[in-house]
Each structure stands twice: as C-alpha cells, then as structure tokens.
Simulated assay, not measured.
Amino acid sequence: MKFLSSLFAIAACGLLAASVFAAEQAPQLSGCAAKRQDITTQIENAKAAGNAGQQAGLEKALSEMNANCTDADLLKQQEQKVLDAKREVSRRQADLNKAMSKGDPEKIDKRKDKLAESRKELQDEQEKLEKVQPDEDDD
C-alpha cells in the first residue's frame, strides 16, 4: 500500500514538473497577443465559474480589442503611462523636499510613504512597458 502511494506521489510530482517545464518553454507573448491571451484566459475562467455576465463582457472586450489593438498604439500608451508615473515621482519628491525643509516629522513620513507608492507604480508601469516592447532579437 505504501508503495502505491509513493508511486502515485512520484507520478504526480513528475506531471507537475512536466507542466512547469512546458510553461517555461512557451514563448512570452507581448503587445496585443499578450492582451488577447489574458482576456481569453479570463473568459475560460468565467466559463468554468459559470459567470455568464462576466463571460459576455470579456467576449465583447476581446472583440473590441481584436478590432482596435495595434502593438504600436499599445506601446505608445504604455510609454505615456511611464512618463506620467515619472512626473508623479518627481512631484512627490518635491513634496517630500518641501516637508523636510519645514521639519514636520509627520508630514515627512506621509510624503515618504507617498513617494514610495509612486516609485512602486513607476516600476510597475516600466515592467508593463518591457512586456509590450517588441523583442530586439525578433528583427
């Protein structure tokens, strides 16, 4: 009996490792293809959950995305988001500097927290930008 349960555990681990390995081998999608894949996955999850309303909304979003999405537009939009996030970080840094010059510890802490939040948002937007940028080796 122990032998069978050990055999089953080893087989399960092997299947899990194979699926992880297969996932690592899949090429990373970018741009509109990545958005399309993300929406498709959400549609499948909505179907599995029996959420017809969400599924219908996602199918409409997929249809609109297919009709209107271009990688160039997506890249331009993401570059603008990164620029906006950089401006926000600069503004928050100026707010912190001003609070530091006044010496109010409570305001300084508040401004530090807001600056850290803005830097995190900037980092997130830069990571998204990297995902939508075309690969250099695809040329």
Rank of each mutant, 00 (worst) to 15 (best):
M1Q: 13
K2M: 10
S5W: 04
L7P: 01
F8V: 13
I10Y: 08
A12N: 06
G14L: 08
L15H: 11
A17G: 11
A18E: 00
V20K: 02
E24H: 11
Q25A: 15
P27F: 07
G31Q: 06
G31F: 07
C32Q: 04
A34F: 01
Q37L: 09
Q37Y: 04
Q37R: 09
D38K: 11
D38F: 00
I39M: 04
T41A: 14
I43E: 05
A46Y: 03
A48F: 03
A49F: 05
N51V: 05
A52N: 11
G53E: 12
Q54F: 01
Q55W: 00
A56V: 06
L58F: 05
S63E: 10
N66M: 01
A67N: 09
C69P: 02
D71W: 02
A72L: 09
L75W: 07
K76H: 07
Q77K: 12
Q80N: 07
V82A: 12
L83P: 01
A85P: 00
K86P: 08
R87V: 06
E88P: 00
Q93S: 09
D95I: 01
L96D: 04
L96G: 02
A99I: 06
A99Y: 04
K102T: 15
P105M: 04
E106A: 12
D109Q: 14
R111M: 11
R111W: 07
K112I: 02
A116F: 03
E117W: 03
R119A: 09
R119S: 15
K120D: 14
D124M: 10
E125L: 09
Q126K: 10
E127L: 13
E127Q: 15
E127G: 08
L129I: 06
L129N: 02
E130C: 00
K131Q: 13
K131T: 15
K131M: 14
P134V: 11
D137A: 12
D138T: 13
